[in-house]
């Protein structure tokens, strides 16, 4: 059984125009998939729809996650089932400490899985080890979620949370945007450390650069809301060299 199976997905902003127009994608456990595409192709819409953002509406199609109808689940239920979205623009939440928030989230997920809650000591140990993985300073522990973080710090914080919550499927939405080369390496190392036979990773990106560090098993090109070409990591290199234009001649975009 596939970990994630998207069939003929049509979706868009509530009351707005359709953005995803018949998207099909299957991800098996252990695989890393990259979705590439120009601005406006629907990359972020796909990430938000998978996470359950209410401002988007699915008009037809299906998404099965580990055998469950994902679209029937509330955002928190998706998280409890093992879906994780690393946001393109992580929101700042002044007043909530990163550690308290993350401990509550982890324990909500553990409770859902029928596992015992982690106490403060065990959680702190786990958190510190994951912060070390992402080379985050201990001072982040006491800071409010994303508040006053630089772009790079926010992205590191996303991957750190992913490492703590230990998802079945991680969706990384433009995690490379706004990162300098050092931060990109740190974030990629964090993601690579989480590659596992029982986990799927979906990397959404505009540029090939990130895929030098997180080498995907499959690359898909998204255009006008559907996948127009799939291949292995070499497809990303070809896109880098030739741009997206040649694909349009090869396969005209659906309307």
């Amino acid at each position: 059984m596939a970990l994630l199976e998207i069939k003929d997905l049509h979706a868009g902003v509530v009351g707005g125009k359709e953005i995803l127009r018949g998207l099909n994608l299957t991800i098996n456990a252990g695989e890393v998939h990259a979705i590439m595409g120009p601005n406006g192709s629907g990359k972020s819409t796909l990430a938000q729809v998978l996470a359950g953002r209410e401002t988007y509406e699915v008009t037809s199609g299906s998404v099965m996650f580990d055998g469950k109808d994902l679209l029937e689940l509330a955002p928190e239920e998706r998280a409890c089932e093992g879906l994780f979205l690393a946001f393109q623009y992580p929101v700042e939440i002044p007043g909530v400490s990163t550690s308290y928030f993350l401990k509550s989230a982890l324990n909500a997920i553990r409770k859902h899985r029928g596992e015992s809650e982690l106490d403060a000591m065990d959680f702190l140990k786990l958190l510190k080890s994951k912060m070390k993985l992402l080379e985050m300073d201990q001072s982040f522990l006491g800071r409010s979620v994303n508040e006053g973080f630089s772009g790079g710090e926010k992205k590191r914080n996303e991957i750190m949370q992913m490492a703590v919550l230990n998802p079945r499927l991680a969706v990384l939405d433009e995690t490379d945007s706004g990162l300098d080369i050092d931060a990109l390496k740190i974030v990629s190392n964090g993601v690579n450390a989480l590659r596992a036979p029982d986990r799927g990773i979906l990397v959404v990106t505009h540029y090939q650069r990130l895929l030098d560090y997180i080498v995907p098993d499959f690359v898909h090109v998204l255009r006008n809301g559907r996948i127009i070409k799939s291949g292995d990591k070499n497809l990303a290199l070809e896109l880098e060299a030739r741009g997206y234009g040649w694909l349009e001649q090869e396969q005209p975009a659906a309307v």
């Binding site: 996470a51 359950g52 953002r53 209410e54 401002t55 509330a74 955002p75 928190e76 998706r78 998280a79 409890c80 994780f84 979205l85 946001f87 992580p90 929101v91 939440i93 928030f101 993350l102 509550s104 989230a105 982890l106 909500a108 997920i109 859902h112 979620v145 949370q161 919550l165």
Partner: peptide
Amino acid sequence: NDEQLFYLRSRGLDATRA
């Protein structure tokens, strides 16, 4: 803030807790 609510829920906290 809807964006903040969604962020918390996407990490596993239910709507009431968020």
